Simulated scan of single mutants.
Amino acid sequence: MATGITRWTGREVALLREALRMKGTDFANKVGISSRQLVNWENRGASIKPFPGNQAALDTLLATASPDAQWRFAQSLTEQAAVGHDERTEELLRRDPRTIRHPVDGKVMMLVEEGIYLSGPNDTSIWVDTYRIDVYPTSNGDYEQFVRATEHQPPQHWPGGRCPSGLHDHPVVWVTWHDATAYARWAGKALPTVEQWEKAARGPKGHAYPWGEEPTAAKCNTAESGIGGTTPVARYQSGVSPYGIFDLCGNVWEWCSTPGTDGPDRYQLKGSAFSSPFDRAAPALENAASVSMKDNDTGFRCVTVV
């Protein structure tokens, strides 16, 4: 299970040496550098980028490592990604008194106060009681906590049933409505109703999009982006809603707790995905699917009632 690295820095070099459990001198000899140069790389961390020849040597060293060493390296990368996400979360918690960190899954949640908002294509006035909603969609990293705690079946895109290091901060996909509901139950949360989801996206004034009235495809990950896959949940900062909620347009469709109107055992989805054209991204639009449906563009986030 080779873990690819786009560009090595001193930080990844240190993680690889630790994963291989090699002394500095032996590792330096494998890469073709001096022990002093290795110490310099590791001390300077992400600020140092080895030359192309050294990059290739590191690629080879990783590719030829044992599966156990590759897994240790992947786990270290995952932990570092989690630290980076936690730093953003801590900043948000400090900056906005409406946010809390949930005690079970650790996700930051935003308070949405009770009141009327404009709902659906006809902007119908709807009252919604106070609740909290996850600022980010449930990520692969979040879902891994749940899988480890409950032994729930992991998503099919996880090699060996383990969260891929490069997708730690991407929304989890290949989850059915039942999977999403099981996670919410484990965390002491619930899937949002369509009213809760839409209010978080459109704000109290009922904007057409989270960011306002202009149909700006560049503010979210839809088919027009050309990315063709999920993106980190905190990437589209210019596309946040009036409540500061990310990815309410694009990236992945999100399961809701509201039944669909087009048949039994169907529940509504909101938000569109990387695979959807932008004209499907408006939060007021409706979609639904079977409870057993799972795909590479479908995930979820959770709410709690205050």
Rank of each mutant, 00 (worst) to 15 (best):
31 V>W: 06
16 L>C: 08
221 N>A: 10
189 K>N: 08
161 G>Q: 06
130 T>Y: 03
111 L>D: 09
181 T>N: 14
105 D>R: 01
143 Y>R: 00
97 P>F: 07
207 H>N: 09
12 E>H: 13
177 W>K: 04
77 L>F: 06
182 A>G: 13
192 P>K: 00
238 S>V: 08
65 A>V: 05
238 S>D: 11
215 P>K: 07
198 E>C: 07
133 I>S: 00
262 D>A: 14
3 T>K: 06
234 A>G: 11
166 G>S: 12
100 I>P: 01
161 G>M: 00
267 Y>H: 12
257 S>W: 07
40 N>C: 06
154 P>Q: 00
89 T>L: 15
199 K>F: 15
270 K>N: 12
50 P>D: 08
234 A>E: 14
1 M>L: 15
209 Y>S: 06
35 S>R: 07
186 W>L: 09
283 P>H: 08
267 Y>M: 14
266 R>I: 08
113 E>V: 12
173 V>K: 00
157 H>R: 03
95 R>T: 12
149 A>I: 00
161 G>K: 00
51 F>Y: 03
235 R>L: 15
266 R>G: 11
207 H>I: 04
126 I>V: 14
25 T>P: 11
172 V>T: 01
152 H>T: 02
234 A>M: 11
38 L>G: 01
221 N>I: 00
213 E>R: 01
234 A>H: 08
37 Q>F: 11
205 K>Y: 13
119 S>L: 13
183 Y>D: 06
174 W>A: 12
106 G>C: 03
63 A>Q: 12
173 V>A: 11
292 S>A: 05
206 G>L: 09
211 W>T: 07
61 L>H: 05
293 M>A: 15
107 K>N: 14
135 V>F: 01
208 A>F: 12
233 V>G: 08
205 K>F: 14
51 F>M: 12
222 T>E: 09
86 D>R: 03
179 D>K: 02
22 M>A: 13
228 G>D: 09
133 I>M: 04
92 L>D: 09
77 L>D: 08
23 K>H: 14
140 N>F: 08
51 F>Q: 09
10 G>E: 01
113 E>W: 04
298 T>M: 08
279 D>Y: 11
110 M>A: 11
10 G>V: 05
162 R>T: 13
283 P>S: 13
294 K>I: 09
93 L>D: 03
37 Q>P: 05
284 A>R: 05
165 S>C: 05
235 R>N: 08
117 Y>E: 03
259 P>C: 14
216 T>G: 06
68 D>Y: 07
296 N>C: 11
211 W>H: 07
89 T>A: 13
104 V>C: 10
187 A>W: 05
183 Y>S: 12
295 D>S: 15
64 T>L: 15
11 R>K: 07
46 A>S: 14
280 R>V: 09
124 T>Y: 15
100 I>F: 07
67 P>S: 09
20 L>M: 13
28 A>D: 01
146 F>H: 02
32 G>N: 09
5 I>W: 05
303 V>A: 06
254 E>C: 12
209 Y>I: 10
290 S>A: 15
